[in-house]
Amino acid sequence: MTKLGEWRHRVRTRNEAQVDVLAAVAAKPLVEAVPTTGPVSDALYARLSAVDVARLEAALEGNMRLLWDDLDEGDRHRLLLSAAAFYQDPEALKAIGLTSAEPPDDVHAMARGPLAHGGDLGIADMVVRTLEDARVAIPAGGTLLDFGCSSGRVLRPLAAWRPDLNCIGCDPNGDAITWAQQAVPDLRWFQSPLRPPLEPCDDASVDVAFAISIWSHFSADAALDWLGEMHRIIKPGGALLLTTHGLNTFAEYTRGGLMDRAIMARTIGTVLTDGIEFIDVFGEAGDWGVKDPDWGNSFLLADWLVEHATPQWSIRLLRSGRLEGNQDAYVLERT
């Protein structure tokens, strides 16, 4: 039995102790070790001259300076790239192709502060590394879609990494898209609807799409509707990278005390029975003003995705906990 199978068996056979089982395995999450260096941040860092690096390192202060001594090589690369944007260093920014623009507090952004400047380099690295693990290459001049881009935190460093790509970002949050259009006008941005279709995208017009923490919030119906729409717009042989809440998420939530134990126990039971569970956590207020009854917190198993995605998609890769030790990452190939 695989480690994943063993975990599922243990949880299935101890219905009254589901959360306690997860607490016991929380210290040993189902996450593979990945290098701290990354293809995007390493490539951007390599564009800096020795003079740029020395100048940026000397400029570090406060928490960024405190972090420096404890970081490994890959994280130091990312910190200096963020520092270039945070300190608005014109020479470094020109070399790496990033912008210092950051969304204001009233515009949706998944991270803020000095280490968020320039975009999310860590997730950009994760996207490219995961595609590489699945042996997916984005062709020269190809089209890359960030589905659910918010204010462009991941697409911005990816576009700097590969200026040859046609980079597109879409999100239902209109304010975030308006900000991105103004801050990074060289990329294509549009406000997406709450239901398909994505009208600006023609059939088979996208080479690779990625969706970071999007299928982790769709109800089952919305998840299937948008899988169908991705199948329409992605070219045959093209790929979709998506992340979801899975079993490892429950271990993360147990460690951090991030979910009521009774609700977690019920959720685990439903996930193991039905393969997916959706919880409306936003209610009438919506998520940053975006109101959709099919947008909340969703937890699903690989079995459910395989059952409903195939044969329209083939599952090329699954990496448990690949997104920050929490969400699972899948790469699907459009058949």
Rank of each mutant, 00 (worst) to 15 (best):
S205D: 08
T273H: 13
Q182T: 15
S298D: 03
N248H: 08
L227Q: 03
G283H: 10
R266N: 07
D280F: 12
K291R: 12
A222K: 12
I276W: 03
A222C: 14
V271T: 07
W295N: 05
H231S: 09
I212E: 00
S298C: 15
W189Y: 14
T254Q: 12
D287N: 09
L247S: 07
F299I: 10
T244S: 04
R195L: 08
H217L: 04
A223T: 08
S298E: 08
L242I: 10
I263N: 08
L247P: 02
N173S: 11
W189T: 06
V271D: 02
P196M: 05
G238R: 01
A211H: 01
D287F: 15
G296I: 03
S298G: 09
H231G: 15
F278I: 04
N297S: 13
H245Q: 13
L224H: 08
I214C: 04
T249N: 06
C201T: 02
P193G: 11
G256M: 13
S216P: 01
W295R: 04
R195T: 06
D221Q: 14
G228C: 15
V206L: 03
R266A: 08
D225H: 13
Q182K: 09
F218E: 02
A223G: 12
W189Q: 01
V206N: 09
L258V: 14
L301C: 15
P293R: 03
P293A: 11
T243M: 05
D175W: 05
P197Y: 07
